[in-house]
Every structure is written in structure tokens, then in C-alpha cells.
Amino acid sequence: MSGDQIGNLIYLVLLGSVIAGWFFVQNRNNLNKSLQYMAAWALIFVGVVAIYGLWQDIRQTVQPQQMVTASEGRIELPRAPDGHYYVNLQVNGTPVRFVVDTGATSMVLTRDAARRAGIDDQNLHFLTEAMTANGVVRTARVTLDEVAIGPFTDTRVPAYVNGGEMQNSLLGMSYLDRFASLQITGGKLVLQR
């Protein structure tokens, strides 16, 4: 458990204790009824804690996933709860999660994603720069042997590796231009080849 989770647990236990104490004081003349109320509230409390603990698993189960329709040549990406669109691509045979960024010119990999895709990040030359919302970052130009999603495979794909810290790899316009259309409709991003 992290420090935040322990703090939340302590807060919830204290809150539950205050509520239990209040019921006990209010119903001290009818102790049997008070114990029934306390048991009911304890079960509610345990249920809330269980739902809170399982929320990530529940959200992953109900959240729509990326869908590839090979016969129609389309890829549907659901909007994530944070408002972004994410896509999973196979880069040199390794799954890499990208955030779709129509404001980015190129495909940009995090150093970790590049390493997992077989790129030796120790020998990269960060000679180019990119302008971001957080300022200028150093980048290294690379060529990806293969990038695939569903039935679509592209070879010799130009990309960059970010020299700084970056949470997600970016799928920019240099790759998105390979699709005939890009449409946002009904909470989905639809890419058509």
C-alpha cells in the first residue's frame, strides 16, 4: 500500500468510528437496535472500500476497447476517460501504447518504448529538437522496421525517440496520414484505410 492509500484508509476508519459512535450515543436506550444499525453501516462501509479497491479492474472491464474491422479497413478507438484517444500498435513486434496526437508532426516514442521495440537507446544521437507545450526537447531520429495494427503493416516507418521524460508515446500526423480518413464521431476516433 502506498502512503496515500494508507492515509485514505485511516481517514475512512476514523469516519466510520465517528458514525458508529454517533449511532451508539443516539440509541443507547435501545442497544440491540443500535448494534443492528452499526452492523448495517459496517457492511456498507466494507462494500464501499471493496468497490474503491476494485474500481480500476471494473473500469477496465466495462471500458470499450480498440476495435479493428479488417474487412472494412477501419479502426475504431474509444475516447478514454481522460478525453484522449489511445491506440495499441505493434512496433517491431512489440506492443506499444500511443496517444493519438493530431498536433504532433511525427511519431514519437518514449525511451522505454524504443528500448522494448529493440532500439538501442544508449547509442542514439539526440541531434534534433521538437517544440512541445513544455518547451524544447531533444529527439533522435530512428527508422522502425515494422509498425502494425490489425491487418495493416507498414515498413521502414520514420519516427523519433524523445530524449526527455514523456508519459506516453505519441502517434502524430506522419503516421496518421497513412489513413484515407480520420473522423471523430460518437465518442470514437475512426481511422479508415
Rank of each mutant, 00 (worst) to 15 (best):
A50W: 02
W55H: 04
G186Q: 07
A140I: 01
A180I: 11
Q36E: 12
I119L: 08
E146R: 04
N32H: 11
V108E: 03
S34A: 15
D177Y: 12
E165M: 15
A140H: 01
N162W: 12
V25D: 08
A113N: 07
Y85N: 06
M131L: 15
G186L: 01
A39T: 15
N123Y: 14
Q36W: 08
T105P: 09
S106W: 05
I75N: 00
V147M: 09
G93D: 04
F126G: 04
A39E: 08
G187P: 01
R156E: 00
V62M: 08
F98N: 00
Y160P: 01
L109K: 01
G7N: 13
K188E: 01
S17E: 15
L43W: 06
G21M: 12
S169E: 10
V136W: 00
H125N: 08
I184E: 14
L191S: 04
E129K: 15
A104V: 03
A70N: 13
N92D: 11
S106I: 11
M131V: 14
M1W: 07
D101R: 14
D101H: 13
I184D: 07
M131P: 01
L9S: 09
A39I: 15
G53H: 01
V87P: 08
D82W: 10
I44K: 05
I51E: 02
V157L: 11
T102P: 05
T153F: 07
I51V: 11
Y160F: 14
P95F: 05
E129F: 09
L9D: 12
V108T: 15
R97A: 05
V13W: 02
A140L: 07
F23W: 09
D4R: 11
P158H: 11
R74I: 09
T153V: 12
R138F: 06
S181C: 05
L109D: 07
E76I: 00
G163C: 07
V49D: 01
D57M: 03
Y86M: 01
V96D: 00
M131W: 15
